[in-house]
Each structure stands twice: as structure tokens, then as C-alpha cells.
């Protein structure tokens, strides 16, 4: 038996882990792009938002066919992953690749422009209102009673899926050809190019991967919360970017760790202090860590390339 306050602690911890998993999934996109290109992809939050809309559309279509909740969730996840991946690829081709040799400010402005464009596009093509997301998790079987007090089925699914996706990503980056090429480009793009790595293709794939991860997070959290609109990527994008900086931007492990730390900090700030101070604590942690370790928790201090 766990005491009442112990149970409360665990409940808050699970809230934080769930929130942190989503941050981690999005933060990976920021950090991978930054690691390879030294670019902050400000349109990433919008890709997350588009992932949620695509998941909504395909899940609604599939539910017309009378599919079960598990297959609906899989359809939503798969469609969002592919669609958002395509968006990521196109964004890189349209907004960043032509500016590869330009001064660093140019792709930054281009990223902001892309972010605004995508948001306005969704307002016009879809709706400026909130729309209900199918409650894909509500029809899942209930958890055994021993777990029920601590976390909801939806949160368990989010945690498990995040775990599987992250392990897959880490394995891929460590062992696969693409992963090795990505790390090589992150170390030295020109040298990788000289050694025969198709850098353009690898960069494209990085965008596809990052966007897909964000879309997976978007579909899961939207199915849990039950509503989306064109603006959901904004605050979440800022938080995930914070998580990436916290963990050390450019570091894959750092993004995952930063996401979880940020999520837990926010949850405990709400649970034990006040939700008014949620953001205060989140950014206080950021400031403290950056004072102690300017490159982030797992970031490497690299001398600025001249």
C-alpha cells in the first residue's frame, strides 16, 4: 500500500512524464536539424499542428469505415507520420535548401515566414475554430485496478509509444547507415561531402524524421485532450525548443532528457506550488542549467566555427 501523499506524488510524476514525452518527441526535431544545419526550424511547431490535423482527418475517414479504436489510432499515427514527413521534406526544399550558402540570418527569417505561412494556410484551408479530435483513447480497455489510481490508459499508451519510438530512433542513429551519415554531417558537413555522403539527401531525411516524430506526439496528445486548432503548435513548439536547449541543442539524448525534465518540472510546480508558477519554474530551470552548463545538460562545448 502506498500512502495518499505517495500516490499523489506518483500521479503528478506520471503527468509530468506524459507531458515530457511529447516535449521530447518535438524537441528531437529541433535538435536534429540544429545539429546538422545549425538552424532553428521555427516551422517545426506548425508541422506538429499539421500532424494533428492530418491524424484527425484520417481517423475520421477510417471511423466512417467502422474500424476499431486500435486500428483508428494506428491509421491516425501512420497517416500523420507520413504526411508530416512530406511537409518536413517540402519545407526544407522550399525554405531552407536555396539558402544553404546564405548568411545565417536568412534561413532564420525564412523559417519564421514558413511558420506564419503554415498557420495561415491551416486557418484558410481548414478552420480558425477549435475542432474536436476523435477520442481514440476513450474506448481503450480500462487499466487494471492496481494502476488505475496513478495514470490513465491514454497516458500509458503515450509513454509506451514514446519509449518505442525513441529506442527505435536511438538505434537507428547509432547503427544504421543514415544515422552514421547524420552524425558525420553534424561533425563536419564539408568533410562528409568530400567522403561521398549525399548530404542533401541526409538533410532531407533528417527533416522527414523530425517532422514524423512531432506528428506522432501531436496525434497522441490530441487524442488524449480531444481538441485542436491552428495555434496548438505555438506554445508547445516554444516549450519543446526550450527542452532542446535545456538538454543541449544538437544532442539527441539531450533533447529526450530535456523534454522529460521540463515536463516533470512543470507538473511538480503545478502539483506542489501553483499552476500560476508553472512557466516560471520551467524557465528558472532553464536559466539555472544554462548558467552552470552553457551548452545544456548533454550539449558539447564546441568552439564556434569561423
Amino acid at each position: 500500500m502506498i500512502s495518499d501523499s505517495g500516490q499523489y506524488f506518483l500521479e503528478i510524476a506520471f503527468s509530468g512524464l506524459t507531458r515530457g514525452s511529447i516535449y521530447a518527441l518535438i524537441a528531437l526535431g529541433y535538435t536534429m536539424v540544429y545539429g546538422i544545419l545549425g538552424l532553428i526550424n521555427f516551422a517545426h511547431g506548425e508541422v506538429y499542428m499539421i500532424g494533428a490535423f492530418v491524424g484527425l482527418i484520417f481517423a475520421s475517414l477510417a471511423s466512417l469505415l467502422g474500424w476499431g479504436p486500435v486500428s483508428l489510432l494506428l491509421v491516425a499515427l501512420a497517416s500523420a507520420l507520413i504526411w508530416a514527413g512530406a511537409y518536413g521534406w517540402s519545407i526544407e526544399r522550399i525554405a531552407y535548401r536555396p539558402l544553404r550558402q546564405a548568411p545565417r540570418l536568412a534561413p532564420l527569417i525564412s523559417a519564421i515566414g514558413m511558420s506564419i505561412f503554415l498557420r495561415e494556410y491551416v486557418i484558410l484551408a481548414q478552420t480558425p475554430d477549435f475542432v474536436a479530435f476523435p477520442a481514440l483513447f476513450e474506448r481503450l480497455p480500462a487499466l487494471p485496478e492496481s494502476l488505475d489510481g496513478y495514470l490513465q490508459a491514454a497516458e500509458l499508451v503515450i509513454l509506451m509509444v514514446t519509449l518505442v519510438v525513441l529506442s527505435g530512433l536511438f538505434g537507428m542513429i547509432k547503427f544504421s547507415r543514415l544515422g552514421k551519415a547524420m552524425r558525420a554531417i553534424a561533425q563536419d558537413r564539408e568533410m562528409a561531402l568530400l567522403l561521398g555522403v549525399d548530404t542533401d539527401k541526409v538533410i532531407s531525411m533528417t527533416f522527414v524524421l523530425g517532422s514524423g516524430l512531432a506528428a506522432v506526439g501531436a496525434v497522441m496528445i490530441s487524442a488524449h485532450i480531444g481538441q485542436i486548432n491552428y495555434n496548438i503548435g505555438f506554445i508547445v513548439g516554444i516549450k519543446a525548443f526550450t527542452a532542446a536547449v535545456l538538454g543541449g541543442i544538437g544532442s539527441i539524448n539531450g533533447a529526450a532528457l530535456g523534454g522529460l525534465i521540463l515536463g516533470l518540472t512543470e507538473a511538480f510546480a503545478t502539483g506542489y506550488v501553483s499552476s500560476d508558477y508553472e512557466d516560471v519554474f520551467a524557465f528558472l530551470i532553464l536559466v539555472l542549467i544554462l548558467i552552470l552548463r552553457p551548452a545544456g545538460i548533454l550539449g558539447q562545448d564546441r568552439p564556434e566555427k569561423v
Binding site: 503528478i12 509530468g16 503545478t270 502539483g271 499552476s275
Partner: peptide, 17 residues
């Protein structure tokens, strides 16, 4: 007495509180 941030991802910690 609690305040939430509009547009935040979820309010589950607050709900539990």
C-alpha cells in the same frame, strides 16, 4: 486558486491537484 496558461498542451497535473 490556480491559473492556467491558455494553449498549453494539457492540464493533467492541475486536474490531479
Amino acid at each position: 486558486v490556480e491559473g492556467v496558461t491558455p494553449g498549453a498542451q494539457d492540464y493533467s497535473a492541475l486536474i490531479r491537484k
